[in-house]
Design a binder for these strands. Structure first.
Length: 267
DNA sequence: CAATGATCCTGTCCGC
DNA sequence: TGCGGACAGGATCATT
């Protein structure tokens, strides 16, 4: 499940593979995966790629003529660079065709991933409201405390809210809460500033470590070069039976998703 | 506005 | 062996 470190890893790989190359067209193989903004009427391709940025779990490909491709992998989306593309691949939902004869396949088993072409000036209209980037200084305990004011939902659920902080998913929320010693069932507004300071630090740390490992590969996540990430070797609670201190972990459902936590270490 | 639950979708795994 | 059901989960929409 691509979260911030995985999205950044895919984006880095994509930049390495196609920076400066020209997209000659985008083929669509599944209804709804690829969408063109309503105000773009005629074909705008070919367009050269020039920037590769990320906002939360969204990849933003800057193209000439002030166009932008917004790509979201959701749960099972993958980008695969292919120097010699052939027929449509299994689960291929869209394809970026490059002038060089190469291509980038958008493979997505569960079909939730999205690609949108819009004008760069309109990007905000196609993104939801997103909270601060967790690795930037603007994500800090004071701001988080402010954002959690009056929020009674469990902290686990709140950290998954992209409007609060952008880029976390189930894996890193479970890991950061364990490292912080905070029970995932605690209400957001009841956390002390001291706890929030610890939480913010651990979120930044776990994301930084995961980035250095090229992300976490559980199930089928891969980089664009089909390499797995390595951070799954360092997970402490996600899908585990015991915490690092050998206590039995509990698994509960929160907002429809599984939460792993240690009743002994997390209060 | 906040919180919750259903929804979308398919491959995999488990129990009978 | 085969089948049904549960599960995985990010974001969106509807409901309370």
């Amino acid at each position: 499940m691509p979260e911030l470190p995985e999205v950044q890893t895919v984006l880095n790989g994509l930049e390495k593979a196609i920076a400066g190359k020209t997209i000659t067209g985008i083929a669509s193989y599944y209804p709804g995966t690829y969408r063109v903004a309503a105000d773009i009427r005629k074909t705008v391709f070919p367009l050269q790629t020039h920037s590769f940025t990320r906002r939360g779990k969204y990849m933003l490909l800057g193209l000439d003529g002030d166009f932008c491709l917004i790509i979201h992998l959701r749960m099972t989306g993958k980008l695969v660079f292919d120097p010699q593309p052939g027929d449509v691949l299994p689960h291929e939902r869209a394809r970026l065709q490059l002038g060089s004869g190469e291509a980038v396949h958008f493979i997505d088993i569960r079909t939730f991933g999205k690609i949108i072409l819009c004008h760069s000036a309109d990007i905000q209209n196609y993104l939801p409201r997103l909270g601060p980037e967790p690795l930037q200084p603007e994500f800090h305990s004071g701001g988080l405390r402010q954002a959690l004011k009056g929020r009674k939902a469990p902290i686990k659920n709140l950290l998954l809210d992209q409007g609060l902080v952008a880029g976390l998913g189930n894996i890193y929320v479970c890991e950061a809460l364990y490292r912080s010693g905070i029970d995932p069932r605690r209400g957001g507004s009841e956390l002390t500033l001291k706890e929030l300071t610890k939480l913010v630090a651990e979120i930044k740390l776990v994301l930084t470590e995961a980035l250095a490992c090229n992300g976490t590969s559980v199930s089928d996540y891969r980089g664009i070069d089909d390499k797995t990430g390595e951070f799954q070797n360092f997970l402490q609670v996600y899908q585990k039976k015991l915490c690092p201190r050998e206590h039995a972990l509990s698994v509960i459902k929160q907002a429809g998703r599984s939460t792993w936590y240690c009743p002994h270490c997390q209060k």
